[in-house]
Design a protein around this nucleic acid. Structure first.
Length: 497
RNA sequence: GGCCCCUUAGCCAAGCGGUAAGGCAGCGGAUUGCAAAUCCGCCAUCCCCGGUUCGAAUCCGGGAGGGGCCUCCA
């Protein structure tokens, strides 16, 4: 049994449960990725960012984590879309997968270990279907193979759904090939012109849910520690995965089902079929990736999150305070925050150093941050602590005049220790790993030189109390989007967006 | 019709039985030649009505409003 205080909300039981792994010290996470027929929208990034953070935290706790995100690259939607675009299914799938993977990289989703594609695992899928048929859970019908939901005693346990009621509802696709309305396709016979694989039931392709069962089992074993996905996948996708997997091997399929809330635009869910999706690659033209990641983590993962440009702008303003601090830190220590090497594992809280109230305060915040993460990955609460930490660091720098070079050795040490903790916690969330994009303009030598020239001229004017001129320079620069700050060691500038 | 979930200040948001974190915006102050930045302070009794409890935003019941799923969807 592992010693940790982590609790995870489990959709299956509708409760927070202590986190215990199947294999001590190891965690397998399977996240349902996209069906690759259209460019990813912001909603597709919610899961990856959250579960990347989950992995970061579990790794921080000392677990060896394997994180799998599947790519569904064969499906009716792909066939239709490829035809529409006058291209092939593999070409379309490849192009959209690349878009997806690129977006993950930009959002600093670094923890994905495997991105299995359904088409690469058709043999395993066929094998699994065979066994389900042999065991009597599935039946072939005119080239298709269906799972018989009435053969699975606890079908519906994830979503509290009763197959009987589904018949009553009668809003599901009816097919004379199905024995029960709730039955779902494991294998679909190919119509002329459609992509196909040879199988014992003739030419065809996998149904929608089966690829996840086959690939997760292959990569992570019969029981997954964590299975994630959007709330909209609970039914039927996850319910069906669950049914077929447990029928297949008679063992629990998933220990913790975790479902993230959905991205909304206005009052509605964002989705491809509703046509209100915000395409990630477009969004990235207007916003820094860090802003998006921070936005996605700013609320608890189980709640819906409402997209708006205003919200992102607000997040950006909040982040500016951190970036200004990182520059302040560099002015004080001549070190780059982004290059600091912080610990990557949880460890006992070090004893307080004598006469170091500040360190005690920072360590206290550190503990609170971890308490929030222990509470079902409460990133919203954890981020709140990050802001408190920022204030504490600024306050300390102010009080001890660190920027004016008046701090003692001990003060500087304490300060750096505090900043290192900020770094350590930032890493858990996967934020602040590189400078803000606004600095790009600062890399322009000519521009930088010109502004410095104006600053020097202005410094002379100020020395001579020629405030009319100095204010004029500052005002005109401000109109151009350049903000000046007069500090004891000289004026600094930045470009406001 | 069935199954879930949500409702906290102007906006976003944490909170999971002991008298409301944090952010954005706003206001006041310190600092500054003036600014900017930073710091300090102010700004909610938690949709409504009942109930349980010594004590509820937090538990139970009812109501109102909103959302998701039941058909493809992260």
């Amino acid at each position: 049994m592992e010693a940790n205080d982590l609790h995870v909300y489990n959709t299956l039981t509708r409760q927070k449960e202590p986190f215990v792994t199947v294999v001590p010290g190891k965690v397998g996470i399977y996240l349902c990725g996209p069906t690759v027929y259209k460019p990813s929208h912001l909603g597709h990034m919610v899961g990856p960012v959250i579960f990347d953070t989950v992995k970061r935290y579990l790794s921080y706790l000392g677990y060896e984590v394997t994180f799998v995100v599947n790519i569904t690259d064969i499906d009716d939607k792909l066939i239709v879309e490829a035809a529409k675009q006058n291209t092939t299914v593999p070409e379309l799938a490849e192009r959209i997968t690349k878009d997806y993977v690129k977006n993950l990289e930009i959002l600093n989703v670094t923890g994905v270990d495997h991105l299995p594609r359904a088409t690469h695992h058709v043999d395993a899928i066929i094998q699994m279907i065979k066994v389900l048929v042999d065991k009597g859970f599935a039946y072939p019908a005119a080239g298709d193979v269906y799972f018989d939901v009435t053969k699975d005693e606890d079908y519906g346990k994830l979503c509290h759904r009763d197959p009987e009621q589904m018949e009553a509802g009668a809003r599901i696709e009816v097919s004379d090939r199905k024995r029960n309305p709730g039955d779902f396709a494991l294998w679909k016979g190919a119509k002329p012109g459609e992509p196909f694989w040879e199988s014992p039931w003739g030419k065809g392709r996998p149904g929608w849910h089966i690829e996840c069962s086959a690939m997760s089992m292959k990569l992570l074993g019969t029981t997954l520690d964590i299975h994630g996905g959007g709330l909209d996948l609970q039914f039927p996708h996850h319910e069906n995965e669950l049914a077929q997997s447990e029928s297949f091997n008679g063992e629990p399929f998933v220990h913790y089902w975790m479902h993230n809330g959905l991205m909304k635009t206005g009052t509605e869910k964002m989705s491809k079929s509703k046509g209100n999706e915000i395409v990630v690659s477009e969004l990235l033209k207007r916003h820094h990736p860090e802003t998006l990641r921070f936005f996605l983590l700013s609320t608890h993962y189980r709640r819906p999150i409402d997209f708006s440009e205003e919200r992102l702008e607000e997040v950006r303003r909040a982040l500016d305070g951190f970036y200004r601090f990182f520059e302040r830190f560099e002015r004080i220590t001549k070190k780059s925050f982004f290059e600091l090497q912080a610990p990557t594992a949880r460890r006992p809280i070090p004893p307080n150093e004598p006469a170091a109230e500040f360190v005690a305060e920072v360590v206290g915040l550190w503990e609170k941050f971890l308490e929030h993460m222990d509470d079902d990955f409460n990133t919203g609460g954890a981020i709140g602590i990050l802001f408190e930490l920022l204030t504490a660091l600024n306050r300390f720098a102010d009080a001890n005049h660190l920027e004016e070079g008046k701090g003692s050795e001990a003060d500087l040490r304490a300060f750096q220790r505090g900043v290192l903790i900020l770094k350590e916690l930032s890493q858990i969330l996967g934020v602040f790993h590189k400078p803000a994009a606004t600095k790009e303009a600062g890399d322009d030598k000519l521009l930088g030189g010109l502004i410095q020239l104006l600053i020097d001229v202005r410094a002379d004017a100020r020395k001579n109390k020629n405030f009319a001129l100095s204010d004029q320079i500052r005002k005109r620069l401000g109109e151009l989007g350049v903000t000046l700050e007069d500090r004891t060691a000289g004026s600094i500038w930045r470009i406001e967006n």
